[in-house]
């Protein structure tokens, strides 16, 4: 009894974990339109997906947005992490605390406050507003990833570089940057996936001039059964799995 009970429970929970994803992937290859009957193997929904102009357009918009949001937040995040790591100054604890507050605060509060600001300054809702919002929720994650890497960093390395006559700039370029590179890449990938995933903030600060994928999916599945969404979901799943495996691989390799 004590042996099979935990195993049964474990199996049950793991099945529940995987059922929605497996179903999604399997039904993306389903010839039939219904959500319950199997009509044979086919790629027609993938074809339908790529023939849908608005969808492909939204896909490119989303990729471009995620790319730029991840890059901007990685650059700012890296500078910030370096400053927070290397210098002592008043208000450092406060800045650290604010990072966590932003990370933990509900997305919807962030979204409403940003919308209030954009309306106040009269910024047209579109690419720029989305970019600013996405950078806002990605940045804390990047800073924390890079800071975690820096905290395990051997302080004698920059000292040694200075003793050997390197200037601050040379030291940063030849010692510091290579050390934090894996964390930068991991942070970038994290930001990229966060941005690609976001629905809540984008709903508020997005505009009709710049349609992005999560909002498109959201509005499609609201109306009814759309097998193209299965195909798209499968593609997104494969894509984020590849991205995140890549980041894990980079982190693990750099730890050696």
């Amino acid at each position: 009894m004590t042996r099979w009970l935990p195993r049964t429970y474990l199996t049950l929970v793991y099945i529940l974990l995987y059922v929605p994803i497996v179903v999604l992937v399997v039904f993306s290859f389903n010839e039939s339109r219904t959500g319950y009957a199997w009509g044979g193997l086919s790629l027609r929904w993938y074809e339908a997906l790529f023939n849908n102009r608005a969808m492909v357009n939204a896909m490119w918009n989303s990729l471009w947005l995620a790319l730029s949001a991840a890059t901007v937040s990685t650059v700012i995040g890296a500078l910030t992490a370096l400053a927070l790591h290397r210098y002592r100054f008043r208000g450092k604890k406060l800045l650290n605390g604010m990072l966590f507050v932003v990370m933990m605060s509900p997305e919807i509060v962030l979204a409403i406050s940003l919308l209030a600001l954009f309306l106040l300054v009269g910024l047209q809702l579109g690419y720029v507003s989305l970019l600013l919002a996405h950078v806002t929720f990605c940045l804390p994650f990047v800073v924390i990833t890079v800071m975690a890497r820096l905290s395990g960093f051997d302080e004698s390395l920059p000292e040694a570089a200075r003793d050997l006559g390197a200037s601050d700039f040379t030291m940063t370029r030849t010692v510091l940057i290579p050390v934090i590179m894996p964390a930068l890449l991991a942070g970038w990938l994290l930001g990229f996936t966060l941005s690609l995933d976001d629905v809540v903030v984008s709903t508020f600060v997005g505009g009709p001039s710049y349609e992005i994928l999560p909002l498109r999916i959201y509005s499609m599945v609201r109306v009814g059964l759309k097998p193209e969404v299965n195909a798209l979901g499968t593609l997104l799943l494969v894509f984020s799995l590849v991205m995140l495996m890549l980041s894990q691989w980079i982190l693990i390799r750099s730890k050696r």
Partner: peptide, 18 residues
């Protein structure tokens, strides 16, 4: 590692009327 949207959509396939 899958997106939240995709995961939730998986549940919609399971739970919806059809």
């Amino acid at each position: 590692w899958a997106s939240e949207l995709v995961r939730t959509y998986g549940w919609m396939i399971l739970l919806r009327e059809s």
